[in-house]
Amino acid sequence: MLIEVVIILLKVGVIFVALLTTIAYTTYLERKVVAHIQHRIGPNIVGPFGLLQPVADAVKLLFKEEIKPAKADQFFYTIAPMLSFITACMTIAVIPVGNWLEIGGKRIELLISDINIGILYIFAMSSLGVYGIVLAGWSSNSKYSLLGGIRSTAQMISYEVSLGLGIIGVLLLSQTLSVAEIVRQQSGSIFNWYFFKQPIAFFVYFISAIAETNRSPFDLPEAESELVAGYHTEYSGMRFGIFYLSEYANMITVSAIAASLFFGGWNGPILPPVLWFVIKVVIFLFIYVWIRGTLPRFRYDQLMRFGWKVMFPLGLANLIITALILVMKS
């Protein structure tokens, strides 16, 4: 019994630390890639190739003065970044980072928890993420924060629908809600990947995911030309840093879900499963940054129109067609 608890705690620790490291180095990746797209060099002073830049950033943020608006709602102002970060990190719990390990005759699954409603859990967590942002916007008692928060809420609620429709396309084929089981179904050949069976679902999912994580070109909540910095305008120091971290944590979880549901997760030849998983996630992160370096920001009405009039019908049509084919087959 005790050993079970220890194993679970170890898994949580390892995956959480790995997630935090990935978050730190995603910021580095983003700065480097965007810099090179713009013919710049990017961070290169701190450490070799600037590799210690994330550490320097973290130290800077920790030592900065925290300025709290006097009229902010203290309780929600404090709790909002936590809520945002915790929900962003919790999603990773149901995603298998590799096949199982065998240590001392004990089989250790390389995921924190293989719950049978994994996908539902992912939906729940991504919905909860909105609260962090809307509370931050409201509690700061600033018009920019409030508008940023409201925009963000509207955007995330709209795109969550298409995000869900994208994932349901896979669910229909897999007949299970457990992410570990879905990944196992995709083993064997590259053509077992759900991407090849559900390309439209992947397309809908990925675009909605970019909108869901408030990334460029859908980064309207933090449109600096209109809203200063959006919902985290009034935040400073590490509280601001936490919002930053949760944005990147969201990116990573969304990439991990995309890799697991559509691209076979840890499945792959020769290399160890964990490495395959990491490679796939990093490719998705690169695509995220690449898109950020390419596309300008949407206007708000364009965003809403795109969400409801293009992504939603496309996801729905894909769902209906998939369902029809499945019914006709059986």
């Binding site: 810099a35 090179h36 713009q38 710049r40 060099i41 690449w290 390419t294």
Partner: peptide, 21 residues
């Protein structure tokens, strides 16, 4: 439109930066 734009930025990724240190 989007693939064209993405291909341009991808090509730019491998060009020599113009930064003077």
């Amino acid at each position: 439109a989007i693939p064209t734009g993405l291909s341009i930025t991808f090509r730019y990724l491998f060009r020599k930066p113009v930064t003077e240190q």
